[in-house]
Design a protein around this nucleic acid. Structure first.
Lengths: 109, 109
DNA sequence: GTGATGGGTGGATAATTGTCAAACAGTTGT
DNA sequence: ACAACTGTTTGACAATTATCCACCCATCAC
């Protein structure tokens, strides 16, 4: 069976208010800071510095990010791989991700 | 009596997650889109295209924006004047406001 | 097939939050 | 002093949401 992708909004359907709402949460902003560091990441509900949270809670936050159009998820076997929708977000909101990356680095949270 | 300013966080205390959370709401993002258009605005709890909301509701949203560090409010008599903390936000999160402005224009919401 | 593993689903619950309404406080004008 | 005006505060209420828990579903290893 070939890989599949979880449902996500089309590029033109990504709403700024939804993106900001999704990122206006400490856990999800920390997830973003991880995803900004590289290309693709294993879902890893137990790691990523979120070991204090239940795995279903982390799963919920990842779903929020995906449904807001921030991330996309590829399903391969029993593993999922998450990546930022960098090209889509840069096209829709130019400069936003770059500013967030610099802001996160500056805070060193 | 000289003008006074309502309490607001110091520039270095502005937190990205708090800013994003403040802007992740339709009403407050619309307020931002207004404030991005000029220098200073009368508080105007009845106008700004928010006539469908109670004045205390609008007051609440403005308080959230101010406490997040997005706006600052000058009190002059019985009127208040609101403005974006552009310099502070540009220093803290370079490029963020510009990206948001472009994003809002692109959506034409 | 059996069992272990990675992750999601649904319910329950507590906390947060958006909204309104009514009462309040300071300011201006008469 | 009194009334009108502007915005805030407080309480109430409904909606949203963050979290946990117990269970489920699919996949991989044996």
């Amino acid at each position: 069976m070939p890989d599949e992708w979880l449902p996500q909004p089309a590029t033109e359907d990504i709403r700024l208010v939804r993106v900001l709402h999704a990122l206006g949460d400490p856990v999800r902003l920390q997830l973003l800071s991880v995803y900004l560091k590289g290309q693709e990441f294993a879902c890893d509900l137990g790691g990523l510095g979120l070991d204090h949270l239940h795995k279903s809670t982390v799963s919920h936050h990842m779903k929020v990010l995906r449904e807001a159009g921030v991330t996309s998820t590829r399903v391969s076997g029993r593993n999922r791989f998450v990546q930022l929708r960098r090209a889509d977000l840069d096209k829709r909101f130019p400069g936003l991700l770059d500013a967030l990356l610099r802001g996160l680095e500056g805070e060193a949270s």
